[in-house]
């Protein structure tokens, strides 16, 4: 993990967005290499979601530039970004609730293959093996026939991941990917995703409030506070950064991978 590849997958310069005169994101710059795992952390309301939504085109930036493998994609619509290999999951997981779990992934495969416009033939017979392979990959195969709306919250997150991965993305953005999961599930899912990303050269960027996940799985960590990057670097360095501790990490009583952890049960 020494020496960054010459070509960045994602290069962001001076990204900014304000709402009603209040700067939500103010001049954020960073880069991400293929196969690299980058965590974006910061207090609630620091601009993480806004930042994320600009990266896949959900929100148009006021200023700044986003380059994907050298191509300027600033302000491009999400569906065009998807075509260029940007996949994402949402903070509040978004799936197709009225369909079965399998149909959700089949729909994703159909979109990626450009076959969604066909007005004939049975959709539930298309991409069935592919869909089941991805469901198996995220551990959802046993629930393939259930309506997606009935899934437990953690499983909805898995389904989102399966849909995102089925398009063989180059860049995967995950907004709080493990929220609502038990600790072991969290690490299991993250490990599998990170392995997959490294093997396939996918750039992976995620936001997360579980510091144990962040410090265990990220190659690098960006810390956002009031719209600005206040720290960036390797997890150990960021964890000991006094600024980061003051604005975000606190005394470290609520997670295991905390700096200078003290046992404190009142």
């Amino acid at each position: 993990m020494t020496g960054r590849p010459a070509m960045d997958l994602l290069a962001v310069e001076g990204l900014a967005k304000s709402y009603g005169g209040v700067g939500a994101v103010r001049g954020v710059s960073f880069a991400l290499a293929p196969g690299e795992v980058l965590a974006l952390i910061g207090p609630n309301g620091a601009g993480k979601s806004t930042c994320f939504n600009m990266l896949n085109g959900q929100i148009r930036p006021d200023a700044g530039r986003i380059r994907l493998a050298g191509t300027d994609v600033t302000g491009m619509a999400p569906r065009r970004m998807a075509g260029l290999g940007v996949a994402r999951s949402f903070q509040i997981a978004a799936t197709f609730g009225s369909m079965t779990v399998r149909e959700n992934v089949q729909a994703a495969c159909l979109v990626h293959a450009g076959g969604m416009a066909r007005p004939f033939g049975r959709a539930d017979r298309r991409f069935r093996p592919e869909a089941e392979r991805w469901l198996d990959h995220v551990g959802l195969l046993a629930q393939a026939d259930r309506p997606a709306a009935e899934l437990a919250y953690g499983d909805v997150k898995r389904l989102e991941l399966a849909m995102a991965l089925s398009g063989a993305p180059r860049l995967l953005l995950m907004d709080e990917p493990t929220a609502g999961m038990a600790p072991k599930e969290r690490h299991g899912l993250m490990r599998a995703t990170v392995d997959h990303a490294r093997r396939n050269g996918i750039g992976l960027m995620f936001t997360e409030h579980d510091m144990d996940i962040v410090f265990t799985h990220a190659d690098r960590v960006l810390v956002l506070s009031r719209g600005r990057l206040i720290a960036a670097g390797r997890p150990e360095a960021v964890r000991e950064d006094p600024d980061v501790r003051a604005t975000y990490l606190g005394g470290g009583l609520t997670f295991a991978a905390a700096p200078g952890r003290t046992e404190a049960v009142s």
Binding site: G42, H209, T247, G250
Partner: peptide, 18 residues
């Protein structure tokens, strides 16, 4: 109550609950 909150906020919350 602590879901999705920054570690520092979670500590503030713990104090309020106590």
């Amino acid at each position: 109550p602590s879901e999705g909150l920054a570690p520092k906020i979670v500590e503030d919350l713990a104090l309020a609950i106590l």
